[in-house]
Amino acid sequence: MTQAAVLARRRERLPFSHDERRAWLFLAPVATTLLVVAVFPIVYSLYISFWSIKLTRPHRQPFVGLDNYAQLLADPEFWHAVGRTTSFTVMAVTAICVIGLAVALLLNETFPGRKALQALLLVPWAIPYVANGLMWKWIYDSSYGALNGLLFQLDFIDKYMVWLGDANKTLPLIANAFVWKEVPLAALLLLVTLKSIPADLYAAARVDGAGALQRFLHVTLPALRPGFMLVIIYETMTAIRHFDLFFILTEGGPGDASHVLSWRIYVETFRNLSFGTGAAMSYILAIVTFALAYGVIRALGRNVR
């Protein structure tokens, strides 16, 4: 038997081919890292959500099954937080879609200075959330904020306002800071989708007698569906779990006006040191996020090639 044939036979007995084993070898570092930093915490937090773990009471940590979940669902405070998260998310995602579309349509036209504008657009996206939060904290500041300065000089207000102290304005103002940072990504995703629409489609629509508005309705908007799908899913997931701005701008205040779910998870876990409840709440948030994403894909994904 030749050497090659011997090797071939030996290879047949092994579960993986030579190439596959080498692939696993190269994948091992990444796979291990993922297991440790992603899979393990996910599984472990599910595990601790079935226990009553309070660090203020380290020696008694009984198994409580679904009690953590049941208590949460029966807690009106939890539902208020869900309501605030929902209104924050709806406000933010709606604004991101509308403004993002407007910006994308603008950048899809050719005009002098378009390249510069496009580069400028990326600035908010490049700023970290914390820096963005600090910037808006400054803008909203009640004694030296830029917003007060602007509105005062334009005579819209006659005295400086404590913007974030007004329970009715807190969520919209935080959403505004969030939108400012997220619009570039949305605009970029929509712009890429716009650019992928074949020019022939517009030519065909013109020959068919469609005016500018009808071309927008019959060619542009339907083609933007996959882009919108991405934007809505991504921004919903980001908004629903968003924490940084609440932490920096209001710490849940004034009162409980910006007590959204992510903020409650933080307070429950790291201030009340109630890890079991925090984990349970996180899991509820994760499941809702997942369900929403699935719903959006189903709704918008119809008819998308």
């Binding site: 074949p198 022939d200 489609l201 030519a203 065909a204 629509a205 013109r206 020959v207 068919d208 007698g209 469609a210 005016g211 019959h218 060619v219 339907p222 083609a223 569906r225 008819n303 090639r305």
Partner: peptide, 20 residues
């Protein structure tokens, strides 16, 4: 403009509206 010329056109790419 094209819509007032009474012409119809068939494109190489067909240019069918994909969602219709």
């Amino acid at each position: 403009p094209p819509d007032r010329r009474d012409v119809a056109m068939v494109f190489q790419s067909y240019a069918l509206y994909p969602h219709k």
